[in-house]
Amino acid sequence: MTTVTAPAAMEAPAGPAPARRTARLRPVVRALSLLAALGLWQLLTTLDIQLWLRFDQFPSVADVAREFGQRLGDGAYWQDVTDSLRRIVTGFLLAAVLGVAAGVAVGRSRWAADLIGPVLEVLRPVPAIALVPVAILLFPSNEQGIVFITFTAAFFPVLVATRHAVRALAPVWEEAVLTMGGGRWRVLASVVLPGALPGIFGGLSVGIGVSWICVISAEMISGEYGIGYRTWQDYTVIDYAGVFTGIVSIGLLGWLTSTVVELLGRRLTHWLPRREGSATS
């Protein structure tokens, strides 16, 4: 990942042994970084720091941990988690399938680009959360509205990434398959989809993040149960430890889902030339 050549050249003679040692150290460094952040939080809240930013009302790490521990034993918490996960998984999968399909269509066919391109371009800048009124009008229940908003949030990043990836494919790959007697479906299955996959996963990674933003916001506005709904409820009754439990839960679930997307992407694009031990998230 180094763009400057000089330091890379200086690293090179060091050989593989130190590189392996740094690789072993990396999980330790990561854990320490997380612990340091928690330590800072604990410090700021127990010392009731008020330096323009006011931490005196904040629950401490210990308070949140206690609250979190209690909720983990409570069925209502898991109900909220499964509700939010069901919404995001449904919306995101719909967005993945339809986003890739629309991206391929727009990227490959002039007709598709002319017919659905303009509509998509006008809808794209609209923040998904601004569609809450639309969702309420459109769907018989809030549940479907929330899934719709989550879907819309992830759909556009996936669409745009797919379209770019499809247009960037090397023409020789397609020509090679055509001169083997392959038709358009063969080109699609053997060249377009596998070739665009690295780009598609870029869009999916962005999409899953935006999906969380939107599922939580939608739940706060119109949800019945779900992490976002619970967090807002706790805020209205001034249960700040509860609010932070919600925030931590969202963070962990978001991290979990992006890791799943990331690992799946890495597995499906294992053929990409990668630098040994290159940066991973």
């Binding site: 790959w173 020509e175 055509l178 001169t179 007697g181 596998p194 996959l197």
Partner: peptide, 29 residues
């Protein structure tokens, strides 16, 4: 009328599909 399996093209540039192994590339036609 168009490209077909009876006329193979060998390119100067890299026309192997990079996600397929050597064997899988040869298996494609």
């Amino acid at each position: 009328t168009g490209p077909g399996a009876d006329r193979a093209l060998v390119f100067q540039e890299d026309a192997l599909l990079p996600w397929r192994t050597a064997r899988a590339n040869v298996e494609l036609p």
